[in-house]
Nucleic acid binder design. Sequence first.
DNA 1: GTCGCAGATGCAATACTTCGCAAAAACAAC
DNA 2: GTTGTTTTTGCGAAGTATTGCATCTGCGAC
Lengths: 153, 153
Amino acid sequence: MALSRTSLETAIHEKIRSSGLRLTMPRRAICSVLSAHEEEFLTTSEILSAVEMNGLAIDPSTVYRTLDDFAEIGLVHHIHLGSQPGQWHLTVDHDHQHLVCESCGRTTLVPTIEIEPLFEVLRRSYGFHASLHHFAILGTCADCEPSDGHPHG
Amino acid sequence: MALSRTSLETAIHEKIRSSGLRLTMPRRAICSVLSAHEEEFLTTSEILSAVEMNGLAIDPSTVYRTLDDFAEIGLVHHIHLGSQPGQWHLTVDHDHQHLVCESCGRTTLVPTIEIEPLFEVLRRSYGFHASLHHFAILGTCADCEPSDGHPHG
DNA sequence: GTCGCAGATGCAATACTTCGCAAAAACAAC
DNA sequence: GTTGTTTTTGCGAAGTATTGCATCTGCGAC
């Protein structure tokens, strides 16, 4: 039951307000970009360019701060691949996690239920609460793993 | 069967040589620091300071390049916590993984065998080979989780 | 609609990271 | 030990990310 882009944005706006953050022009602009790229990870500079393409001008530092604020309320999360700049992603939908291929950069979605047993072990045995927002698993996807028996053309 | 600090360093040196990298003073200095802090994640500036405390002087850019080179041969890996600078760690010993607390920064070791079932699922169902080197799970440790029933003084 | 306060922004300064290039060092061959 | 080739280093410069602070703006109260 996917939300339309507009409803998605409305939902995000509500989350921002209800978390005690103010809904400002830069934040709207960033939300809009994130909603339009719901399935991708974007770098800060990609976000910035996209905002500018929408005819708006915001400061790079505002992008960084806004993303940090959004991360704090669980609206977005980010990952780092190797030494590349961080990549950001909406976290509206918590029922999947990300497998990120270090070779081709593609992300695969995995239902959280597959990973929940591990989290349960970590909670029970170590008292450790894994953060869903930051949990991206890096590795090599089927297409990029040479000896996997899943060759692709 | 842990290696003594000296044997650990020797093993690292061999790995460097056998990977076709040259064993230089800056690399020795960095290896020495990493070996002495085998259980911690260190930032580049912490590594740099530690090298200087050993009476040696190397350039920051050399630290970055050396760590990248070491990562390429699987000798080290790094993680990013939130917006903090990246943190590095030796990867000699593969039989544990890291839980990193985003609140206090402490790391907890977990035997890989606890996590292996998840990796197995990812391999079987998704053809995805999770990279052990990059696998640090972020979250909140028992001490920092207020409502966990594991209060500490 | 206007006022006031707290939070957010933009700008500038700082810190962190990467890159290019000439000089230096490692290592193999002699 | 010396020589030659190739990698690595340090330095400077450029690019990217973060922080401090004065100003501005969202939003609730009137």
